[in-house]
Design a protein around this nucleic acid. Sequence first.
DNA 1: CTGTGCGATGTTCACGCTCACAAACCGACA
DNA 2: TGTCGGTTTGTGAGCGTGAACATCGCACAG
Lengths: 341, 341
Amino acid sequence: MPASDGDRSRPRLTVMRDVAKLAGVSHQTVSRVLNNHPNVRQETRLRVLEAMQSLNYRRNLAARTLVTRQSDTLGIIGFETTLFGPASMLYAIESAARDAGYMVSIASVRDLERRHVTEAIDRLTQHAVDGVIAIAPKLTVTNALAQAPPSLCCVAVGGAGEAPTVGIDNAAGARLATQHLLDLGHTTVHHVAGPADWPEAQERVEGWRQTLYAAGAVVPPAEPGWWDAESGYARGRALAADPRVTAIFCANDRIALGVLRALHEAGRRVPEDVSIIGYDDMPDAGYFLPPLTTIHQDFSELGRRALTLLLEHMSGASTTHRVLVTPNLMARASTAPPPPR
Amino acid sequence: MPASDGDRSRPRLTVMRDVAKLAGVSHQTVSRVLNNHPNVRQETRLRVLEAMQSLNYRRNLAARTLVTRQSDTLGIIGFETTLFGPASMLYAIESAARDAGYMVSIASVRDLERRHVTEAIDRLTQHAVDGVIAIAPKLTVTNALAQAPPSLCCVAVGGAGEAPTVGIDNAAGARLATQHLLDLGHTTVHHVAGPADWPEAQERVEGWRQTLYAAGAVVPPAEPGWWDAESGYARGRALAADPRVTAIFCANDRIALGVLRALHEAGRRVPEDVSIIGYDDMPDAGYFLPPLTTIHQDFSELGRRALTLLLEHMSGASTTHRVLVTPNLMARASTAPPPPR
DNA sequence: CTGTGCGATGTTCACGCTCACAAACCGACA
DNA sequence: TGTCGGTTTGTGAGCGTGAACATCGCACAG
């Protein structure tokens, strides 16, 4: 003989109706309590809350999403998230999102071909995210973002382009770095740049160039490279061989590490012979040989700002297009006045 | 006068019924096509697919989740994901998950108090994830995991504990490192350990100790510290002051960086006077001064294994409890035979 | 010619929730 | 006492999908 029906294969989880029955109200009242609707008598509310607690009730978000069409979930499009910068942004965004009551889904992109970005947006859309933040250091991304369905709010972090953007003020950081070296007495500053197709790298080049120009200093050529120590080492060797080089601004700390090694091998001391300044203030930059002067960026602030901007756009309350976070200088031992000539 | 009803506030998105109508079938047939049900005539299938394409139909996953109780989403509990190791694991897991058709939601944990971990599990549960992978370098996490609702499959990455675990074989890595130094002729090897409450750090201590013991070498004391260069620097100064120290195994590369600096300041050359070996092979370890010999870990492999294990457990096909990935040695310039006495 | 079995398709219901609307209730005031 | 404005609560419908069951057509054996 069959047992009482209803307990088939599925475990039969606690739903609103159960809470309602226990509290002696309708399911709608439970819903009201859950959504903090004002028109619920205090006593009723308490009874419902108690019932929820004793049944260990959790509302089914899928059902909620089905009817409200919003998921309280944000999508993040990630790129190169094993690097310190992007990883920090990711973390910062996630933290801010959580504090704002959002869940975060992540869609990493192996390379920045537009196709892959579009596909990532697609996956996120299908999972009904309410908005998207893209860690988007290249133009392809921000532009692909602009082509997302108009109902989907997107914000780009880092880089530049058509979509609303939040970023570190790279030009300002580069100016800070360059000016610091000029102020120490160097007649000019060399630059080891990042990749040419990354806006962040270009903005740093720009800030560096402007500062030199404004100071009436010679602007040496700056050939681009990749973001790693290997690239810094390769170009550092060339710079080390040139005795006129007394100050080098590196597009990031990893590049600086490579340059440091190249100078060391060439027998040029830092900072006595050559001053080096990096960018990022990655962990342990203070323990390089010598400790690296660098530009510090507040990634948590960046994440918070990105989230705020996204929420503003989602609620239609803002049309701000670009938000910049100001970086600051961390002076350490790798910079000093130039050697007496 | 009111316009035709149905187009109220909400944009009225394309649903199965629309596709069905266009293809001249019932919505259920559309559902069958979508789920690759075998019993659909080829011709019908094509007609439906065509209709889906022309309407740009995407199925509503919330509705699907509501009825199937599964979301094709995995949860990741992240800790310290701005560090290289965890960030790499995160990325690797996400990649593997995507290839397996899963979306990934992330819940970062600021600190590893059990309370916070439980809370993270809670958030993920509420969002109906099908399973959880925790980046869990401390016991609190794996144990909290074991307390998750039994219906929720959890796998821990890194560390050890009650839940099924995937990790790098830290003891093996430590043996590799220690043996490498012994083989070079050092009479014993000192160790700068990681935090005492991190299993990964303890396993490294254990592997180091075993190797020394097996070789009949003196086992020096190894006081624990944190994972960063500052900690390495502090303990490096003490070691640098002891002329008997000729070989140091550091629990990770960042610690090694700090030790390197301490030795440098004390005027002890690496590797001529002292050999140093790290752990992690973080990016640019090959550009330290000197390039760091270290233990390399394959994080992608780790991520893939973690996902595989989780899926196996979810399908009930496996009871494997612990999976280990073998690390290998990256010999670079920071290790050499001891100085002649 | 009828019955049987199977593949292809349609019908109906349930998933758990929110929304719109209706009903009940309460005090106030003419 | 009746009506009115407001608050509190209940009822029913519908969100888009998948599962169970019903139906239909057809081939083939008896």
